[in-house]
Design a protein around this nucleic acid. Sequence first.
DNA 1: CTGTTATTCCATCAACTACTGGAATATAGT
DNA 2: ACTATATTCCAGTAGTTGATGGAATAACAG
Lengths: 223, 223
Amino acid sequence: MTATSAELRSDLHEQFARIGKAVASPRRIELLELLCQGERSVDALARATGMTVTNVSQHLQELSAARLVARRRDGTRIYYRAADDTVCSFVTELGAVARERLPEVERLAAEHIDDSTKMEPLTRSELLRRLGRGDTVVVDVRPMEEYASGHIAGAISIPLDELGRRLRELPKTKLIVAYCRGPFCVLAPQALALLRRRGFRTRRLEDGLPEWRAAGLPIASGS
Amino acid sequence: MTATSAELRSDLHEQFARIGKAVASPRRIELLELLCQGERSVDALARATGMTVTNVSQHLQELSAARLVARRRDGTRIYYRAADDTVCSFVTELGAVARERLPEVERLAAEHIDDSTKMEPLTRSELLRRLGRGDTVVVDVRPMEEYASGHIAGAISIPLDELGRRLRELPKTKLIVAYCRGPFCVLAPQALALLRRRGFRTRRLEDGLPEWRAAGLPIASGS
DNA sequence: CTGTTATTCCATCAACTACTGGAATATAGT
DNA sequence: ACTATATTCCAGTAGTTGATGGAATAACAG
């Protein structure tokens, strides 16, 4: 009885470790984070990460063996995506644990996103309240495809590259709230810095889309 | 700017992967789960897992390097514990993802805990409601030390080994709810099987203590 | 100071992992 | 059928990890 239950435990832990091994590589974590923003082909991933196609493919095989990603063929290319929401909230929590436990993480973030500390972020519940009142514009500054594959309900898409050209779309009378991929994403801080220089009232949303989704808040998709 | 932000991303992912690597080994996951039930000395862990002391020590060094565990010296022995609650909820979620994504996990559980499927578990919120009414007895069937280092507020401790001798402490008029370490722990199912043979009305609590704690529900500690 | 117990350090070996470049496969277009 | 593109498969190599046994360290009890 104890023999078989010890056996069960060890078999079970071996299975758990398959998931752990999948997220034991910085490359695979990067891939997973990208895939949580929307589906991508192998070479789109290679371009986005600077890895060789072969290498990306190999990492995707391993993620696939751990069933963390799913694929879909369309003509000559194959699109990968995160297998489901629990996977994305898991990698999000992985980042949260790293942030909580490893002082290096805060330090790195502080070094590179210098002004992130100056402005304190708007909480998700606060944004939700404001959305009802209509005195707030929410801007998704990620690339357009990521917006298309899922965004905060009511947000408009202005990718960071286009922001300079599209300032007139934003009202000076309302509060502009920007968000992007997560707490360490540099897009929203850069967007807000630009907007503030032009005299807009701005706030950053705390964290990013994955956390909004994990909290079960309303998502829309399509352009 | 893009250069330095790519650099940030890769440094960050390297840090995240430190956490991933820590949970990439079945042994280390087993150790973490034990440590989430309460602090233990190195050789207590070695005895509980069947590993050599040297090996346990080495794994603990790695967990410690990822700052997932903390230690405390008491005389000649050193007690390790999970560094904080987020660590425990992270390993709990690791298990949940494995269960969700890897069919082998359900299969293993079904094979070994044969009757677990027959009785559907009591939800946490249901138990909470019943606790207010006083028609329910909650029994923690884990070893005494684990009960002492944290248990559901209002639960009594009857370790599985002692259950046969202590049946008279339980009323036949109330519902007996047992719990243990988690969804794959065999202690509670065995306890309930015994109790049902003796004519008690029983239910199993869904999951176990780590999940109760992660849900922010009331915990007590001490004997 | 000596012996005992608990833990960590160190060296070693086998097993595994990450990346690379080149070959093979699959789909679509001509 | 032929070509181009996207992806995967296959070897080879360098580097890393996991387990083991023996030596070193640290705290304590006599």
